[in-house]
């Protein structure tokens, strides 16, 4: 490589943040069976399902990767595995900031995993109830993440939580209201504030706008984009909607039946899809 890369902006530096190798999740119906997944992701011998099969990819610092697929593609399972909500059957993940990127994240104990979640990652679930506590105020939910990351100065915690809630345009008079009374879009914004609270290196979004009204979706995506750009956070966003992917992604990875069918630059996937399935999906986009 000739002298291309100058300093400054993080994106384009090609510094690897996350490396995922051969990630597999099998929901086994028969543990003694030597599964045969030659013909897809259902074992021909016992009917076990491979929700995720040998998925490998890398994510650079500051990059946005969108994983696109229909229901059952394994995209959400993949994300949940990365967030330690689900244990993989096989596979490794390496984070460059954790033990020099040489230790498989799945091999550490649950306490360390929790620390990784609290300090290095932010997650926005499709269903906000999975990510925020309804009986706690908006400010409390953001504080939750900070407290879990060992923040112990009340004033700082409060200020930071209010700062983040303002960033996601939660009205001031609702900062101390219990989130169970918030609208769907508002709950998602609280989730985003919470996910960002501790300046994570990695942001995971699982269908963050699905089920919301169109204008709310647009506003939310704009918000995510602006925050992502400002902070340069490496992001993985799972969605079934190419339109949503297009707004944020640098790269798109298409999944079907637990495997990665195609991956490439976002504009390339949208304009010149190679794989039959990708072409099918692109052709199915409305309007």
């Amino acid at each position: 490589m000739c002298a291309l890369i100058q300093d400054s902006a993080k994106k384009g530096e090609n510094i690897m943040l996350l490396e995922v190798k051969a990630l597999t999740k099998i929901y086994s119906k028969n543990d003694t069976c030597k599964h045969d997944f030659e013909k897809g992701n259902v074992c021909v011998k016992c009917g076990s399902v491979a929700a995720v099969k040998d998925v490998s990819f890398r994510l650079d610092e500051g990059e946005v990767l969108s994983i696109v697929g229909e229901s059952g593609s394994g995209k959400s399972t993949l994300l949940k595995i990365l967030y330690f909500d689900i244990e993989p059957t096989r596979g490794e993940t390496y984070l460059s900031s954790f033990e020099g990127g040489k230790r498989n994240l799945f091999s550490v104990d649950s306490k360390r995993k929790r620390e990784l979640r609290n300090f290095n990652m932010g997650m926005v679930y499709q269903n906000p109830e999975d990510g925020i506590k309804p009986g706690i105020s908006a400010s409390g939910n953001v504080a939750d993440k900070l407290l879990a990351a060992n923040w112990r100065d009340f004033g700082r915690i409060k200020n930071r939580s209010l700062e983040l809630l303002s960033k996601t345009e939660i009205p001031e008079q609702r900062f101390y209201d219990l989130t169970k009374n918030f609208s769907g879009g508002m709950k998602q914004r609280v989730q985003i504030s919470k996910a960002m609270a501790n300046n994570p290196e990695l942001l995971l979004l699982d269908e963050p706008t699905t089920g919301l009204d169109v204008s709310v979706q647009a506003r939310l995506l704009d918000m995510i984009r602006s925050i992502q750009q400002e902070l340069g956070i490496a992001t993985i966003m799972v969605t079934h909607d190419f339109g949503v992917a297009k707004t944020l992604a640098d790269r798109i990875m298409v999944m079907c039946g637990g495997v990665v069918v195609e991956s490439g630059l976002a504009d390339q996937i949208l304009e010149d899809p190679q794989h039959e399935y990708t072409q099918l999906l692109i052709n199915s986009i409305l309007g």
Binding site: I136, S137, S139, G140, A143, D144, L147, F154, I157, Y176
Partner: peptide
């Protein structure tokens, strides 16, 4: 963290 959260909400 749940206990810390309780103390935080109490303070608020």
């Amino acid at each position: 963290s749940r206990m810390w959260l309780y103390l935080y909400e109490d303070l608020i």
